[in-house]
Every structure is written in C-alpha cells, then in structure tokens.
C-alpha cells in the first residue's frame, strides 16, 4: 500500500464517517457541520484525482454556498442547545427501506457496468480545455445544456424576486 492509497482511504473514511454522523446526530447545527466535512472530503477526493477545477468548484458551490445557506436557515429557525426529537419507528423503517433500494440500484448498476479500457490519451483537465468544451457547439460540446441550465437559474432568480417583492399598498 503506497502513500496515495493511504490518502484515498483517509479521505473516503472522512467523507463516509462525517456523512454518517450528519444523519445520526440529534443537534441540527452539528449535522450541518458534519455535512460540510463530508463535502470537503469529496473535494479532497477530486484533488486526489488531480481534478483541481472540479474540486475548487465543489468547495465554492457546496461549502461556500449551500452549507452557508443551510447554516443561515438554522440560525433563523433554531436555538442553540436544542435537540431534535428522534424520528418515529415508521419513519426509520421507511428510511431504511429507501436506503436499501438506493444502494441496491447503485450496486446492480455498478456490477453490470462494463469497464472497458481505452487507448486514447486523457484530455488534460485544465481550465482552458474545460472552458472550450463547455462552450463548444460541436458534437459532445456542452453549449446547449449550459445555456438551458442558465435559463433555469434565471427563472429561479426571477421567481425569488417575485416571492420576495413587497406589493405596494393600494393608495385609495
């Protein structure tokens, strides 16, 4: 076992362990923090695979954006030291069933996937290539999905503004 493998197992243990803690802890803020560590572990795995750009984006989007938003919503709705009630038995059973089904689906897919090797040299995952690929209109280019996603985000933004907009009181 060389150093790289050891690092992989450390990162995997961090990701899985803190993910497990995130769903089992009874304190909601701690849950958010464990989720944060789990996401950082995934970013670490991307770094381990030399996908620097994806790793940095993972940190920007999940750690800097989503976890901070989750923490903000916790700040506004909960009190320090409050413990969540443990879920009812039926909920636990359904959760276990859902987890089992999801895990089975993924394992079946993994088992049936044909891992065929390729002789093509890998594209270097630097920013230049990613940018070119992202906005290319050739076969396999991502220009259309990129634009569709941006329209979706725009719609979400407009929706947010409409919800948050204060209706002017009628001046009669």
């Amino acid at each position: 076992m060389d150093g790289s493998t050891i690092i992989f197992y450390i990162l995997a243990a961090l990701t899985l362990g803190s993910g497990l803690l995130a769903v089992t802890t009874r304190q909601i803020f701690r849950s958010a923090i464990y989720l944060l560590f789990s996401l950082i572990g995934i970013a670490g795995l991307y770094f381990w695979m030399n996908y620097d750009f994806i790793a940095a984006v993972q940190i920007v989007v999940y750690v800097g954006g989503i976890v901070v938003l989750i923490i903000f919503s916790i700040f506004l709705t909960h009190q320090t030291g409050e413990k969540l009630p443990s879920p009812t038995l039926s909920r636990q059973l359904f959760a276990a069933l859902a987890v089992f089904c999801g895990a089975a689906l993924i394992l079946v897919q993994l088992y049936h996937f044909q891992y065929t090797g390729t002789t093509e040299t890998a594209l270097e995952p630097n920013v230049n290539n990613i940018g070119m690929q992202m906005l290319s209109t050739d076969v396999g280019g991502y220009a259309l999905p990129f634009e569709v996603v941006s329209i979706l985000l725009l719609a979400a933004l407009v929706g947010c503004i409409v919800i948050a907009l204060r209706t002017k009181p009628q001046t009669n």
């Binding site: 620097d52 984006v57 920007v60 750690v63 954006g65 630097n126 920013v127």
Partner: peptide, 14 residues
C-alpha cells in the same frame, strides 16, 4: 496549482 486564483476564492469561503 494551475487554478490558483479559483482555489484562493474557494478556500477563503471556508
């Protein structure tokens, strides 16, 4: 690292 600036703005959000 070849994405230095992005790395800095990512980690500073930590």
């Amino acid at each position: 690292i070849n994405i230095g600036v992005l790395y800095v703005s990512a980690v500073s959000s930590l």
